[in-house]
Computed example of a mutant assay.
Amino acid sequence: MTTTPPTTPPPLRTERLDFTPYRPEDEDHFVALLRNEVVCRWMGQDQVPEPDLRTLYKAIFTDVYPQRLFDAWGIWHEGAYIGHAECKKTGNVDGHELIAALLPEYWGKGFGTEVVHGLMRHAADNLGLKEVYGMVGAENEASLALCRRLNARHVRDVVGEDGTVTKMILIPLTDTA
């Protein structure tokens, strides 16, 4: 008997966080996160107009999940939405990229580290990957410090049209604890 693989990524759990595949009712949380000016700055992206974000959110259900394009979750702490996480193939190199964004009120509390560790475990255990990539703004000292703790290796700098520098890093998945 053949079973059809699920169209959503598996739910994940860390010590304090739940990684939950998005549901239609999570749309306003997603939009608010990605409309936050500070979040966009540290993600190295311009603010996207709200209607475009809503279209992007709907694509999670019409394209991303049904076609298994990549894994994306809402991140929850004690029932509150605190951010977004992805693990997907990157167009920058031959490999997978981890993406995480948290609401600013949850910064500096270890949640970013916990999200990245959860994504690393997923990449190693569920996808069988040996390494993953990340893109970190050159001025994002907190994320760069996390990369150093993960024994990440700097691959190259990517310079945007506006002159901003993003560091491409490679994270080995030998220890996903």
Rank of each mutant, 00 (worst) to 15 (best):
Q47I: 15
P49W: 12
E50M: 11
P51L: 12
D52R: 15
D52C: 05
Y57C: 12
V64L: 12
V64R: 07
V64P: 04
Q67K: 15
L69P: 00
F70D: 01
D71Y: 08
A72C: 13
I75L: 15
I75D: 07
I75G: 06
W76V: 12
E78H: 09
G79V: 01
A80F: 00
Y81W: 08
Y81E: 04
G83Y: 02
H84A: 00
C87A: 06
K88G: 05
K88I: 00
V93W: 12
D94V: 00
G95D: 03
E97C: 01
L98E: 01
L98W: 02
I99A: 10
I99K: 05
A100K: 01
P104L: 02
P104A: 01
P104I: 02
P104W: 03
G108H: 13
G108K: 10
K109W: 04
K109M: 11
F111H: 14
F111K: 09
G112C: 10
V115P: 08
V115Y: 11
H117K: 15
G118R: 01
M120K: 14
R121A: 14
A123R: 10
A124H: 15
D125K: 13
N126W: 05
N126H: 14
N126T: 11
G128V: 08
L129Q: 11
E131I: 03
E131N: 06
E131Y: 12
Y133E: 02
G134E: 08
V136I: 15
G137V: 01
A138E: 13
N140H: 14
E141C: 01
E141F: 04
A145S: 13
L150E: 06
L150A: 07
A152G: 09
H154T: 08
H154A: 06
V155L: 11
